[in-house]
Design a protein around this nucleic acid. Sequence first.
DNA 1: CAATTCGTTCAATTACAATTGAACGAATTA
DNA 2: TAATTCGTTCAATTGTAATTGAACGAATTG
Lengths: 163, 163
Amino acid sequence: MTATLSKTRLEFIEAGGRLWQLLGLPRSTGQIYGLLHLSPKPLSLDEIAALLSISKASASTGTRQLISWQAIRQVWVQGDRRDYFESVADLREVLRTAYHTFFKPKMEKTEDRLELLLATLEAEHKSGDITKDEYDFCAKRLGGIASLQDKLTKVLPLAEKFL
Amino acid sequence: MTATLSKTRLEFIEAGGRLWQLLGLPRSTGQIYGLLHLSPKPLSLDEIAALLSISKASASTGTRQLISWQAIRQVWVQGDRRDYFESVADLREVLRTAYHTFFKPKMEKTEDRLELLLATLEAEHKSGDITKDEYDFCAKRLGGIASLQDKLTKVLPLAEKFL
DNA sequence: CAATTCGTTCAATTACAATTGAACGAATTA
DNA sequence: TAATTCGTTCAATTGTAATTGAACGAATTG
């Protein structure tokens, strides 16, 4: 069986693939999401692979990625032992979990790293490895980054409320 | 002459490289920015290449990228015909131009693409290529995307004010 | 219980982007 | 004007991530 897709859905998949790609995520993963998001009914792994002309292996890894980001979910169709997938309809939900699983952890890591960096700088200052001028300059720049970082962590979660 | 960098600056460069990398930008470009941002004085292309142990070609393309994003600027040192570079101190400024040169155009492109997609869908509907149900479903999903897209374009520029 | 069906894993391949060396033109210097 | 110096470009290389085919275990079916 060679199911075909409407032009709209084909173009949407194409667009989804490119959009995700420029966010640094694999194109095929974006295509899977695009396919599912415009699909009225859940699709199986084999259907996904066939419709997108990708290997089943890619379909498998792609769906697992999307599930880990909670962009799609697995659904069970009674009387069928295959796995079926459907997209999470509410995109705001997807954005929210993306923030919590992607950005937030990264922000926190950056915060820690900055702390360490400031400590290193202090140490270098005390032991006389760097001049007072270099110390002052670096401290100022690092402070600027910390300040922005701080504000971002406060503003971003707030922005969510407006969506 | 083999100038050396303080530990702080080395680690900062390292961190900058990785940070930019996970935003999908070339590591070496991030390293150049890190180097310049903690450098009290402007640096020439050769200095950048030497300090980071990268080729001059990479330094050249990297700096040009950073300039196009207005993350660094070119400064002239009198009596020296070489190009010197320094980072833009105010990171909010960098963020702002990043928004305008990166995200905004992409958002607009997405908007246009959505319009086209909706038109295609209408056409398919009218010509009877797709069922009423498929039309309704796709229209709903596309509408949801358009709505989110719309809100994002309104909220993001606003968030800037809080930084 | 042999034969399918299904999903996953992994080594190998492929595709893509980053990096470089070498060559070049323009500007500067001796 | 010959020799340097400087920055850029580009073909070729390198490195990295995505993709795949083949093999596998588990579950299901005849």
